[in-house]
Simulated assay, not measured.
Amino acid sequence: MNDRNRNASTFLANAGWGPASRVFLAGDASDRRYERLHLASKTAVLMDAPPGKGDDPRDFIAIAAHLNALGLSAPRILAKNLQHGFLLIEDLGDDLFARLVEKDPSQEAELYAAATDVLLHLQSNPAPQGLANLRAEDWAEAASFGLTWYRFAIAGDAGDTAKFSETLTQALQTHADGPRVLILRDYHAENLLWLPERAGIARVGLLDFQLGQMGQPAYDLVSLLQDARRDVSPQTEAAMIARFQAASNTQNFDAAYATIGAQRALRILGIFARLCLVAGKAQYVPLIPRVWRQLQRNLAHPALADLAEICALWLPEPSAGALERIRAQCGTNQTR
């Protein structure tokens, strides 16, 4: 037993869950991992977030408290050891939106309508104090991963990152730089659970929100509808955009949606390439073509003509050969 497992066992024993059986539940793009615990008729989830790896369980606790205070369904905190990065949290079950829609596509409209209503409710309430609130320049810099990692992995250089950031900054300032709201950032079908025994917006269980910050109203809706892991039907995407826009009474929303969609797709292209090159996680490479298609749809908006031009100049298409070049470098750039 390594030190991490030993510390986890001690934490669970102190929380009264020492005899529980432990089954791996999930991991993600970060260093966090989750285990489901079974103790007699009870279940819970162990969140293992190693200290110093980027995610602080304190952030999960703070955002969860805010969400639950709004009548939403974030996991309750059952026990914590912040020194070692362990949380014992409520088990919200296995009915992820992604699984339910895969089994029965007819559920997509109902589930996504509920998820859209959660965003509308969340954004209609004040956000917690003290959250990061990035400038347009910061959002553009984050999207430069599309050059510094995605392009680099294929072409061997990062291209003109200064001109790229300048162009995207201008687009964000023009079309998507208004009043900020709380965004959860990873708001998609693999982080949402269906809880039909609850009522209204509480039927949507929320996960992976610890990086919540201040951001643009369109951001989480883009995350939901332009999912890097699955295709949302065009009909559902159009209906949810209309639902969100009508309820929030936002102006020029189509340009904001396309701009945030382009920013997010550019960043994800870079993140997926980096996860392969640095962390050796090749499983993200097959997702790149879907994100590329989403990027192209966003760039087709007339408001993004300048950004489309610079992306066409510097971003190589994810051809079969390009994807193979990324795979061939998996785990080889750990010091870059």
Score class of each variant (00 low, 15 high):
Asn7Gln: 15
Ala279Thr: 08
Glu141Cys: 02
Thr10Ala: 14
Ala132Ser: 10
Asp31Trp: 13
Pro19Gln: 05
Arg135Phe: 03
Asp48Val: 11
Ile201Thr: 13
Arg325Gln: 14
Ala79Met: 14
Gly270Ser: 01
Ala69Thr: 07
Glu190Cys: 11
Asn252Pro: 13
Leu82Ser: 15
Gln210Arg: 04
Ala20Asn: 09
Leu211Ser: 11
Thr161Tyr: 11
Gly331Tyr: 10
Ala15Leu: 12
Ala256Ser: 11
Ile89Thr: 12
Ala74Ile: 12
Leu275Asp: 00
Gly16Val: 15
Ser9Asp: 06
Gln251Ser: 07
Arg203Met: 09
Arg185Tyr: 00
Leu25Ile: 07
Phe253Arg: 09
His188Thr: 05
Gln129Glu: 08
Gly71Asn: 11
Phe97Lys: 05
Asp91Asn: 03
Lys80Pro: 07
Gly146Met: 03
Asp3Gly: 11
Thr43Ser: 13
Glu166Cys: 13
Leu46Ser: 02
Ile89Trp: 06
Leu211Val: 06
Leu295His: 12
Pro289Thr: 13
Thr250Pro: 14
Ile154Thr: 07
Asn81Ser: 12
Ala15Glu: 12
Asp104Gly: 07
Asp56Arg: 04
Leu269Gln: 02
Phe24Ser: 15
Ala300Cys: 10
Asp56Ala: 05
Lys103Leu: 08
Ala258Tyr: 03
Gly54Thr: 04
Thr43Tyr: 04
Pro316Ile: 10
Thr116Met: 14
Asp306Met: 08
Arg274Tyr: 01
Asn2Cys: 10
Thr332Val: 15
Glu137Thr: 04
Leu87Arg: 10
Ala255Gln: 10
Ile63Ser: 01
Ser21Phe: 15
Tyr219Trp: 11
Glu309Ile: 13
Val222His: 05
Ala308Lys: 11
Asp138Pro: 00
Tyr219Phe: 07
Asp104Phe: 15
Thr116Asp: 09
Gln170Asn: 15
Gly93Asn: 08
Asp186Asn: 02
Ala127Thr: 05
Ala26Arg: 04
Gly178Phe: 13
Gln329Leu: 09
Leu224Thr: 03
Phe24Trp: 04
Asn133Asp: 03
Ala69Gly: 09
Ile288Lys: 07
Asn7Glu: 13
Arg151Pro: 06
Gly280Phe: 00
Ala238Glu: 14
Ala158Thr: 12
Asn191Phe: 15
Val181Asp: 00
Gly156Ile: 06
Asn2Lys: 07
Ala273Trp: 01
